[in-house]
Design a binder for these strands. Structure first.
Lengths: 202, 202
DNA sequence: TGCCGAAACGGAGGGAGCCTCCGTACGCTC
DNA sequence: GAGCGTACGGAGGCTCCCTCCGTTTCGGCA
């Protein structure tokens, strides 16, 4: 195992870290459309430096979320062996929605990524997608889900939930509630939540 | 009834129409973020003219969709007397989602509008929202819907469906399918569609 | 330690978009 | 057909995107 080609200069590495930190802050505050010049400014770095490290906005975003989506794929694979298919899928879907809502604007990027093989996140996203679908199919095979619901539709709804939650803001429980609704729709039966408020008390 | 103050010059009116037409085309092609300068160019009008007629992008958008959302409120009110509460709500929700998806980017504007009393669409949106909720409550009172589902959650999901459909594009039936799923979730029971593909044939 | 080449830096600058301001043109009314 | 006032249009100031290239700095080697 040679450690040759370790040519990355220390200042370069330091700047990259600063850029990532600044980008995370800015994306969190202003969404994925935040000003890249402002990010460079906050990182105490010239704009040219930002563009050498990350050739475009997408690359920067990718550097920030790549690992997270890799983990999501791994999580899905692990959950494939859990005893309760529905719970396994439900929990994974919740992770998926949460990750998708990391930044305002991220759900849209993810949708675009799925259709663009040139995107740096393309592979990770598809791996995650495929394992998510496997998790879903397991539920359907077990008879937990309706037979007429498509996995992609449920994933699309989860992404949509991530979007609307981020867009509305100010209701931290909204994602859970909406996701529960989506899952109930896929199941074709109401779950625990239903008992809470009966249709009419009298 | 005096027709005084009809001072609007004919060239002004003509330009306004051209601007609206150009804006509709551009918003349709590029979403609500389309270049206003390009819109002025296509309308054969100076940028200053655009800004006098519509002080900002939101005003332009509002001029294009206002009537549509007014009609949505009226539609909801009319449907309040229909015999089948669920069908009435379902059909209205479908109209709502369709209108929300007029342009890419519109769902986000609508969500923002609901929170901004200064927005020109604020009143129309809230009227539409309130009548939509009334339509929903009628279903719940009739026992057609689960008691624990909030009207706002269902409306949020419909907006989310409009968003994801517009974002994904290339699947014209997606909105219907997702909306049907959302409605099933609210109902707490599967509908007609369920029979199509049984869980497992053997 | 000091030298030197490669690697990295940073910002000027061109292009596009947003929006304002104001000198000019033109439609309307009399 | 003259004059008033409405409406026009685009220059210009600002921000942002992204590229290009002269300058600086790191770090391996003597």
């Amino acid at each position: 195992m040679e450690t040759r080609r370790r040519s990355t200069r220390t200042d370069a590495r330091r700047n990259e870290e600063r850029l990532l930190a600044a980008a995370h802050t800015m994306f969190t505050e202003h969404g994925t459309g935040a000003s890249l010049e402002e990010i460079a400014r906050r990182a105490g770095v010239g704009i040219g430096t930002l563009y050498r490290a990350f050739p475009n906005r997408e690359a920067l975003l990718e550097a920030l979320v790549h690992e997270r989506f890799e983990r999501l794929a791994v999580e899905a694979e692990e959950r494939l062996t859990e005893p309760e298919p529905r719970a396994a899928f439900a929990q994974w879907l919740s992770s998926f929605a949460e990750s998708s809502a990391t930044y305002r604007g991220l759900p849209a990027s993810l949708v675009a990524t799925m259709r663009d093989p040139g995107s740096p996140l393309y592979v990770a996203c598809h791996r995650m997608h495929d394992t998510g679908v496997a998790l879903f199919d397991r539920c359907r095979d077990a008879g937990t889900f309706r037979g007429d619901v498509q996995a992609d539709d449920v994933l699309a709804l989860a992404a949509a939930v991530a979007w609307v939650s981020k867009e509305v803001e100010g209701d931290p429980e909204m994602p859970e509630r909406l996701l529960a609704l989506v899952l109930d729709a896929a199941t074709g039966a109401t779950t625990a939540a239903t008992a809470a408020r009966p249709t009419s008390p009298a």
